[in-house]
Simulated assay, not measured.
Amino acid sequence: MKVLVTGTAGFIGSNVALKLLERGEEVIGFDNLNDYYDVRLKKARLARFIDHPRYTHVHADLADRGAVEKTFASHKPQRVINLAAQAGVRYAAENPHVYASSNVIGFLHILEGCRQHPVEHLVFASTSSVYGANTAMPFSEHQPTEHPLTLYAATKKANEQMAHSYAHLYGIPSTGLRFFTVYGPWGRPDMALFLFTKAILAGEPIKVFNHGKHKRSFTYVDDIVEGVVRTLDKVPGKNANWSGSAPDPASSGVAPYRLYNIGNEKPVELLRYIEVLEHCLGRKAKMEMLPLQAGDVPDTEADVTELIQSVGYAPKISVATGIDNFVSWYRSYYCE
């Protein structure tokens, strides 16, 4: 199977590409290697598979319509996994246009590629941030998500709606995955685990928002990748149980379309997360306690019942094991 994977220099995208190559697929990677964070890390991720005989890399930006059109026309992928996006919740306050360019216009170009060169299945990244002002726990795909609290979340909500419209109009089977706080080796330097580890090793204080009292469905990257690949193999159809009334937000009566949460069902309090990190590093953290940041939600908790029933998704890696794996990777990459 030939799979176009966007964001292959990214944290999740690089691991998805590796997984697909390991199981014998042909992968067309697409990434612009932007400088949102250290490009050297992105190149190091790519170096793990860029010379693989079944891997082809396209160095381009999703916002470049011509480059996306050329990629679809030249390689004719059978399936697409769209993971490329401008990430980061807080960066949007300073650079809102980048989010619109990458996450909205870029995604439109992917949808048009799927329309002009019909694909069997489009899987795309959404986020738990779309739940926004919702406080009903656990978060379920059957709940409405009409009140995002950040521009990043709003762009991902837009992706879900755009994909549904194309699934309805052009019959493109599409599945959106709402990721919950992904962590692990090769992670993003702007995320908490990376920032905490760097600061603790340097003897510097870490910023602990909401006084560490909020909870997150921290999900190890290997568990995320397994879910992404299993979802790729599960092509959605129309909801046969639709009664003709208001469609379920998680599926659709008029289009081959599904939304799934993908995360760990056991949320962990941030202070416990830090405690595990301290144990793995063998050092205590100096903590600067701060109030909840604007745009942050107090808690996230993933209900992944739908994904379990659909593809047998079951996260396996505990926070203790996952953080230990990250620390081992961090020391080998930065300290040796």
Rank of each mutant, 00 (worst) to 15 (best):
residue 172 I to S: 06
residue 235 V to L: 08
residue 184 G to A: 05
residue 256 P to V: 03
residue 266 K to M: 10
residue 271 L to M: 14
residue 69 E to I: 00
residue 137 M to V: 02
residue 237 G to N: 06
residue 14 S to V: 09
residue 328 S to F: 14
residue 87 A to S: 13
residue 155 T to Y: 08
residue 69 E to G: 00
residue 92 A to E: 10
residue 323 I to K: 08
residue 238 K to D: 00
residue 123 V to W: 03
residue 182 V to H: 02
residue 282 G to D: 09
residue 324 D to P: 10
residue 248 D to E: 13
residue 250 A to L: 07
residue 204 E to M: 12
residue 125 A to K: 05
residue 316 K to E: 13
residue 172 I to F: 02
residue 133 A to Y: 00
residue 161 Q to K: 15
residue 331 R to Y: 10
residue 87 A to W: 09
residue 99 Y to N: 04
residue 38 D to L: 12
residue 26 E to R: 10
residue 81 I to L: 09
residue 261 N to Q: 05
residue 76 K to C: 00
residue 21 L to K: 07
residue 178 R to Y: 03
residue 39 V to H: 07
residue 160 E to G: 07
residue 312 G to A: 11
residue 309 Q to K: 15
residue 150 T to Y: 11
residue 186 W to Y: 10
residue 278 E to V: 09
residue 234 K to W: 13
residue 80 V to D: 00
residue 228 V to T: 13
residue 164 H to I: 14
residue 281 L to E: 02
residue 218 F to V: 05
residue 190 D to A: 12
residue 327 V to T: 12
residue 67 A to M: 00
residue 180 F to E: 10
residue 141 E to P: 04
residue 143 Q to A: 07
residue 260 Y to H: 09
residue 57 H to F: 10
residue 166 Y to K: 12
residue 187 G to Y: 08
residue 161 Q to L: 15
residue 216 R to E: 04
residue 299 D to N: 15
residue 134 N to Y: 02
residue 132 G to W: 07
residue 4 L to A: 03
residue 52 H to K: 08
residue 192 A to T: 13
residue 260 Y to T: 12
residue 49 F to E: 08
residue 198 K to C: 11
residue 241 N to K: 15
residue 281 L to F: 10
residue 184 G to F: 03
residue 250 A to M: 09
residue 334 Y to P: 01
residue 47 A to Y: 02
residue 292 L to C: 08
residue 208 V to C: 06
residue 6 T to I: 01
residue 12 I to Y: 00
residue 139 F to Q: 04
residue 73 A to Q: 05
residue 64 D to S: 00
residue 28 I to G: 04
residue 194 F to K: 09
residue 316 K to F: 02
residue 156 K to H: 14
residue 157 K to F: 08
residue 214 H to K: 09
residue 271 L to E: 12
residue 263 G to H: 01
residue 60 A to Y: 00
residue 298 P to Y: 15
residue 270 L to Q: 13
residue 144 P to Q: 05
residue 187 G to A: 05
residue 122 L to E: 02
residue 57 H to D: 05
residue 152 Y to D: 05
residue 194 F to I: 13
residue 143 Q to I: 03
residue 310 S to F: 04
residue 254 V to I: 14
residue 36 Y to N: 11
residue 335 C to N: 11
residue 13 G to L: 02
residue 186 W to M: 08
residue 74 S to W: 01
residue 17 A to Q: 04
residue 267 P to M: 05
residue 275 E to F: 03
residue 87 A to C: 09
residue 132 G to T: 06
residue 114 C to Y: 01
residue 265 E to T: 13
residue 291 P to Q: 07
residue 320 A to L: 13
residue 92 A to D: 09
residue 100 A to H: 12
residue 182 V to K: 02
residue 280 C to P: 08
residue 98 V to E: 03
residue 257 Y to M: 06
residue 166 Y to L: 08
residue 287 M to S: 04
residue 75 H to A: 00
residue 130 V to Q: 01
residue 99 Y to C: 01
residue 331 R to K: 15
residue 136 A to L: 12
residue 91 Y to W: 15
residue 111 L to Q: 02
residue 209 F to W: 12
residue 242 W to P: 06
residue 28 I to H: 04
residue 48 R to E: 14
residue 149 L to E: 10
residue 196 F to I: 12
residue 243 S to A: 14
